[in-house]
Structure formats: C-alpha cells, structure tokens
Design a protein around this nucleic acid. Structure first.
Length: 213
DNA sequence: CTCCGGACTG
DNA sequence: CAGTCGGGAG
C-alpha cells in the first residue's frame, strides 16, 4: 500500500525547480571528498576547498593519502571542522588502500548493502554521508535522508519528527519507484526546498511549491 | 548573532 | 541525552 503523496511531492518540486544537476563534481572521488566536507557545512565553502585540492593537484586517492594531515587541513580550512574532516578523509583512504588497493571502482562495485556497511564502519561516515556516496558516487539505489527531509515530511504530517534515519529512509523508498534518476533529483530538490522555503526559523509556506499537499 | 547538503564522544 | 568540531556568509 503506497502513499501517493511521496511521489506527488516529487512531481510538484520537479515541475517548480527542474533538474538540479547533482552531485556537482568531475569524478566519483571528488563526490566522496565533497560528501565528507559538506557535513553540517554550506556547499559554497566546500567548493572552495575542492578547488584548493585541485589547484594543488591532490584530488586523487593516492595524492590525498600521501598528504600530511596538517597540510590537508590547511587546504580544506574553508569547510570548517578542518582538523576533524582531515582525519575523516584519511579514515576513508585507509580503508580504500587497505581493503581495495586504492581502487575506488573496486570498492564501489560491491553489492549495495555490503558497500553501505563498509562505509558506515568508517569513523566519520554516518548514514547521510554513506547514502550520498552510494547514490552520487556509486550509482546505487539508496535514498539520501537529511535534516531537510525530516523537517519537510514531518511538517506535512507524513512522518513523526523523531523517526530514526533508517526508518525514514525505508518509508520513502517503499513509497517510490526504484529509479536512480528519481532518487538523485528528489534529494537535491528537497535540499533546495529546505533552503528556500522550509527553513527552521521563518518558513515561507505560503510560497512553497508543495503548500497544497 | 545564527545557520550550514552531520557525526562522534562522554 | 548534551557537548564538540569551525570557517564563511547573511
């Protein structure tokens, strides 16, 4: 028994905003680095860090792994939590080189559930980052939940506010067709809606594309 | 001053 | 559960 509102909301948002072209990035590795750097951080600040890494020619697993933590931290400073995130990037690279010979393809080609568990075992990669990597770097059918998702769906009385991550993820997935492009756009559209209309403080409900639902 | 495309530790 | 990490933009 599907709840038609989940797909309906997507249709409304897509009609209002169109394709969002996520994830911005030239390679799966760039997507992964961005996913870790953007944790609780505005994307604009992350893009500066990514550009720094590119300018220094270290945006590859090998080069980044060989970079001292202190140097890495200075390059990603604009993303905030830079000491913490330098370690988190290194934690990821440790697994990539110890388990997959530094070969991203080898890591990402694993079956979905296996890959998700591998990622979640890395300190610094939680459920949202893992799902972002799965979907946007690995092309896996894994819906990404974030704070906006919870806020929008609970404000529309579709879920309880405190619904745990995995339950919210499953609720959405079971009410949507299993389509990669749909998962990709939906999360991006939710982020856009959250920023423009469903803010915590001063929501613009009267102007929101899904105000009728 | 608050908020951001979270996650870990105590 | 709360505290911590943190620069950048509004």
């Amino acid at each position: 028994m599907k709840n038609p509102k989940i797909k309906l909301i997507y249709d409304k948002l897509y009609s209002a905003f169109g394709p969002q072209h996520w994830w911005p990035g030239d390679s799966p590795f760039e997507v992964i680095v961005g996913a870790i750097l953007t944790q609780n951080t505005a994307w604009k600040n992350v893009s500066v860090s990514i550009q720094n890494l590119k300018n220094n020619k270290v945006l590859t697993p090998r080069e980044l792994y060989d970079l001292p933590l202190e140097k890495l931290g200075s390059l990603i400073r604009s993303s905030g939590y830079y000491n913490l995130k330098a370690k988190r990037l290194n934690n990821f690279l440790n697994i990539l080189f110890s388990g997959y010979e530094g070969d991203l393809g080898k890591m990402l080609d694993q079956e979905g559930k296996t890959l998700r568990n591998v990622l979640l075992d890395i300190s610094g990669i939680g459920p949202e980052t893992a799902d972002s990597i799965m979907l946007y770097a690995g092309g896996k059918l894994s819906f990404v939940v974030d704070a906006y998702t919870r806020r929008i769906f609970s404000r529309h009385k579709l879920i309880e506010e405190g619904l745990p991550y995995d339950e919210l993820k499953h609720f959405i997935e079971k009410n949507l067709p299993g389509n990669l492009k749909l998962y990709n756009e939906y999360h991006a559209l939710i982020v856009r809606t959250g920023k423009e209309f469903c803010s915590n403080k001063d929501p613009k409900c009267s102007l929101c594309p899904i105000r009728e639902i």
